[in-house]
């Protein structure tokens, strides 16, 4: 099944890229009918390791999945079942800034609520975790303090 998807998605995509690239300058090799990948050779390293901060970054949010958390924890009576899964909440540590721990809202009288303890909907957070030196968090996210 994966081989079919490889040809349909990856192989077709690469072929499309080669076709639309200016002058066909792409350096890809053809994909064999058996789905085997190129000649197996590896290019030389780019010269350095992966940037350390890269492992601490956000990832693009998934398009699918099974939701969390168990609803019996946040909506034991099922009063918010008609609202779908609870929104995420964060704790404000500075203007527009929340700590890095997100938690689900609780169902209170038929509505999702981030209270108590001063939590706010994650949609009110623009930055998460400690703010790097020289930056401030604004409604538009992280910006240089000098700006």
């Amino acid at each position: 099944m994966a081989s079919k998807l490889f040809h349909t998605l990856v192989g077709f995509g690469i072929s499309l890229g080669v076709a639309v690239a200016c002058g066909g300058t792409s350096q890809t090799q053809g994909i064999g009918d058996d789905g085997a990948a190129g000649d197996g050779t590896q290019p030389p390293d780019a010269g350095t390791d992966a940037p350390p901060d890269a492992f601490c970054d956000a990832s693009w949010p998934t398009t699918k999945g099974q939701p969390e958390p168990p609803l019996e924890c946040v909506d034991p009576l099922g009063e918010c079942a008609h609202l779908g899964y609870p929104p995420r909440c964060g704790t404000l540590t500075a203007p527009w800034t929340c700590d890095s721990i997100e938690m689900a809202a609780f169902c209170v009288e038929g509505a999702w609520s981030c209270e108590p303890n001063g939590r706010v909907p994650a949609s009110d957070c623009r930055c998460w975790g400690p703010i790097p030196e020289g930056y401030v968090c604004t409604a538009n996210g992280l910006v240089p303090a000098s700006g």
Partner: peptide
């Protein structure tokens, strides 16, 4: 998904080499 593969195929080798350094972190985070 094809957008990404097509875009990668349209890049020059130098840019691809730069992208290579980030692949493991992105795979792990994803």
């Amino acid at each position: 998904g094809r957008i990404g593969w097509a875009y990668l195929a349209s890049l020059d080798a130098g840019t691809r080499a730069e992208v290579s350094r980030w692949l493991l972190p992105m795979a792990y985070l994803n």
